[in-house]
Design a protein around this nucleic acid. Structure first.
Lengths: 207, 207
DNA sequence: GTCTATAGACGGATAGAC
DNA sequence: GTCTATCCGTCTATAGAC
């Protein structure tokens, strides 16, 4: 149960460098994402995170002011990228090329955010009710709504909006399901994008 | 959010029928699903469920042997239907008609299961780690894998399996996002199915 | 920056009366 | 079937030494 080093290939090895300086903060985030995604946010205690890092709970509080603060540092980064995408897209002409580019960037965000993205979707309820306090509105739904609007226009018919929603949803599920099963992420990325574009454009555009 | 007791987010009224018989068990399930979906499984305490029902925690333990048992009673029903679908599908010829029917039934299960389905997806991490004890393997991933296999054949190329996965994912997201926004559920159901079939068949079949 | 120790709160669960 | 009362565990978070 306590395999501090092993498993995911990218977990760093050293706790300290030669002078005793530590990158503990970043390592806390790494371990936290992994545990939150695996067991859930609430079920993961600070004690458990601390144990994996071979530090004590109190040390965590030096780097983060609360458990919620750890998750916030993770989530902000991801949603920040989505918000940036939305802002960018609103300044573009509503062309098919723009819609294609929105999907392309969205797939990029998902692919890059990977672990945080998975953690987020595994803990939607917990994360949403955390953020609800400061970040008003529904974290996921609001962004989803914006993206659908940008992919279809403000008052598109149901079928069209549905295609956009299913394209977005397909990206999430498709990526998360296959990300750790295929060797070539770039290939997966391209395939997901191609199908998502296909879905959104409703067969008028074939790649 | 709460359509069982329509109206505001308020407390149900009747505790007993005329003869003192109570449907407490069913009402516990209703309240639990709603709260779990809204705030998350772990964040919802038995005290809170009991309060909404105007009973005490101890009363809950008469009907369910544990908190986990409440969620299990909910989840079993849903996954039972999915498993039945998989069993049925395995006994069918691997034709396009069968694949279409798999999707049709899957959409039906999602549409009917609605609230439980939403609760499940809002608490994937929590629910998975609960069931892990008795129901070995990944609750979601394993079923997903089976369905993808049935929709594509055992050793289909990545793109084809990806289409299947994204069709399934699209159904979940599409339904959950629009279910409480459109007046006509049957219409939504048909539209989702149509698009999902479109996705899975990869443009060879147009509805 | 990290530790030990502990406060303070809350949760799940049980016993036994009615 | 439901209640009151209570036990025990675990958790977040803080105080203060080093």
């Amino acid at each position: 149960m306590n395999e501090t080093r092993r498993g995911q290939p990218e977990v760093p090895v050293a706790h300290h460098d030669a002078r005793g300086r530590s990158d503990t903060r970043a390592r806390i985030q790494e371990v936290a994402v992994a545990l939150f995604a695996e067991q859930g946010y609430e079920k993961t205690s600070l004690r458990e995170i601390a144990e994996r890092l071979d530090v004590t709970k109190a040390a965590l509080y030096y780097h983060f002011k609360s458990k919620e603060d750890i998750v916030r540092s993770l989530v902000e980064d991801y949603f920040g990228q989505v918000d940036a995408l939305i802002t960018w897209a609103r300044a573009q002409p509503a062309t098919a090329a723009t819609r294609g580019e929105i999907l392309r960037r969205y797939v990029g965000i998902v692919a890059e955010g990977d672990e945080v993205f998975r953690m987020l979707h595994q803990n939607q309820a917990a994360v949403t009710s955390l953020a609800a306090a400061k970040n008003r509105g529904e974290l996921f739904r609001e962004r989803m709504s914006s993206l659908i609007g940008l992919l279809t226009g403000p008052a598109a018919p149901l079928e069209e909006r549905l295609r956009a929603a299913m394209a977005l949803g397909g990206v999430s599920v498709g990526w998360m399901f296959f990300a750790d099963q295929v060797p070539d992420r770039a290939e997966l990325c391209a395939a997901v994008l191609s199908i998502a574009t296909d879905i959104a454009e409703g067969g008028t555009l074939r790649v």
